[in-house]
């Protein structure tokens, strides 16, 4: 668990956009525009094209997402098995942190 968590953190300033992209692809393949719409709906953040494709390039380089054949000029991406594992571990880690935070707030 620790190893995968560090891997996502290794993306530096891209770790948050990368997490949002992985979450967006968790329910099926999407192309760039669909990802930005989905991410805006889910998190309220609008990823710019530079940030989105910066994240996609890094995730693809690590083998966490993979491209599918193009539909016109749009290319959909999907999660790989490794990407699924990394996302799962990251979400579990965030859940644990959120739980501790909520507990401390309640105790204060």
């Amino acid at each position: 668990m620790k190893k995968n968590h560090d891997e996502l953190q290794d993306l530096g300033r891209f770790s948050e956009p990368a997490l949002l992209i992985l979450i967006s692809l968790a329910d099926g393949p999407k192309h760039g525009y669909a990802m930005t719409q989905d991410i805006e709906q889910v998190s309220g953040q609008k990823l710019g094209p530079g940030t989105l494709y910066g994240g996609i390039a890094r995730l693809e380089a690590r083998g966490w997402i993979e491209p599918l054949p193009t539909d016109d000029r749009r290319r959909p991406y999907r999660l790989t098995g490794a990407g699924h594992r990394v996302l799962k571990h990251r979400l579990e880690s965030l859940k644990a942190v959120a739980k501790i935070g909520a507990q401390r707030l309640a105790d204060a």
């Binding site: 192309h31 760039g32 525009y33 094209p49 996609i56 390039a57």
Partner: peptide, 13 residues
């Protein structure tokens, strides 16, 4: 690798 895709995205942005 990414220019076509990004242009497609920019066309809708």
């Amino acid at each position: 690798r990414y220019e076509d895709e990004m242009r497609a995205l920019l066309a809708e942005t």
